[in-house]
Every structure is written in structure tokens, then in C-alpha cells.
Amino acid sequence: MAATTTEAAAKRTGRAPGAAAPLTGPRPRATKVAANLVLLVITLCFLLPTAWVVFASLDAEATLSFGLPEAVTTANFSAIMTPELTWRPLWNAFVLSFGSGAITVVVAVLAAYPLSRYRMRFGRYFLYTVLFGTCLPITAVMVPVYSLFVQLNLLDSLPGTVFFMAATSLPMAIWMTKNFMDSVPVSLEEAAWTEGASAMQALRRVVLPLMRPGVAVVFIFVFVQAWGNFFVPFVLLLSPEKQPAAVSIFAFFGQYGSVAYGQLAAYSLLYAAPVLGLYVLVTRISGSAFALAGAVKG
């Protein structure tokens, strides 16, 4: 996944991948072997916690410690696949993520258009505010958000939570969308304008079709963030039938987690799978694993 980037980078600098890199030492061969070995050791350390989830989910007698299952079973998966335990929380997570993704993309595209196309007096300040918003640790301030939601009577409301999540991902989404839109040449819209199209028509018929991959990346970015978010729905949604998978999985952990590790791991895997799939999709769309990390790089 991330390797595609380093390869692309190698091409750009005109080196074969693996040719003497700036960090290799004076004896290229020995250094290279050492580098590969060190890398493998680090990789193993990084792999162990993740691998536990995969192996425990298939283990009939899973413990907290990583180990190869003596008997491979899918019983952990079939045990948790009930409507209350899995399907409804996953559906709630989908509603939250899709809802906030859709709202964010529409609002971000609308906002990015004037910011990308016109020189406005306050456009600069707006962008600085947006950038400031991307940095603010908003999930760290869930306590005031909670009391604000009490005042607005939005506590335990799915739409309220969807709009809040959309708003918190909006700064980053506007920033990304504007960058994607900047790369669409204005000359194409000028042709539409001379034929009498309004700015909004030009946006819909000319600009949007050209930046479809960009819009997809922004949508997936917001969707993945919302899908993985635990703290926001944990604080804002109280009734179990409204809670998304992240919260219900935590409740499951509290109730059965200390006995049914295999089921906890199976549930975790089931819940993580869409995110992993979408991540691979993004790397395909944008041609690099950087779409999500690189977008943040000012």
C-alpha cells in the first residue's frame, strides 16, 4: 500500500527502487542487509497486536495472548451475528458515516467553489479559519459539546450527531476539496459561462465531473473518520438502539469481553473490514497511500 508511494518517489528521483538511498552507509551491501533486518524486526513488533485480533477471531479458545488457534472455527463470527449485537449497530454506523459524509461533501463543494474561483476580500480569512479548525482538538472538548447538546435538546438524536460529525470534518474537507478544485482549469468553465450558464450550473456540469476522484476521496475520508469515531457517539448517543458499532462493541467488551475474547475479536474484525476496504480503494483512486495523510500536509 504505502510502498507504491516510495516506488513512485524512486521513479521521480530517477533511481531504481533500492538503489543507494541518502541514508545508506559507506558499505552499501552490509548496510542494506542490516536495514532490511531492522525493518523486519520493527514490522514484527507492529504486527503482533494486529495479528492477535485476526487469530483470536478464528480461535475457539482465544485468550488475550497471541497464539495459533488449535482448532480454527467460525463459531465466534456466527455467535455475534445477531440483529441487536451486530447488524443494527453496523447499520447505525453506516447511517452516521454516510450521512455525515454526504452532508460534508455537498457543503464542502459549495464552499470550495467561491474560495477556489474568486478573489474575495474575506476568502483568505475564511481559509485561515478553516485551517485553524482542522487543528482544533474538537473531540477533546466533548464535555462542552455535551452540555451544548443538552441546551439545544439534541442529545440522543441521530441527526444532531450526524450534523455535528459533518461539521467537525468540514474544515479538512473544505481544505481538501479546494485543493482538488484548484487543479481543474478555469478555462473550461469560461466556455460554459459564455454560453450563459450560471456559476452553479458550471460547477455541476463542468467542474464536478472533472473532480470526481477528488470528491470520492473526500467522501471516503469523512466516512472512514465517522465510522471509526468512538468518543463522539459515546457521549452524544445514549439509547443502545441508536448507537453505532464503535460504541456497542465497547459495551460488549464491558459485558462479555473478559470472557469471550474470540467473539470480541470477531466483532472487531467485522467492524474494521469496511474501513480497510475503503482505505485500499482510496489508494487505488489516488494512486498513492498518501491521499489521507498527504492531504493534511498544509
Partner: peptide, 8 residues
């Protein structure tokens, strides 16, 4: 840095 000097 290590990734740059690692084999594919």
C-alpha cells in the same frame, strides 16, 4: 529511511 534501502 529504512524503507528506502529495503528490498521490495
Amino acid at each position: 529511511g529504512l524503507l528506502r534501502s529495503a528490498v521490495r
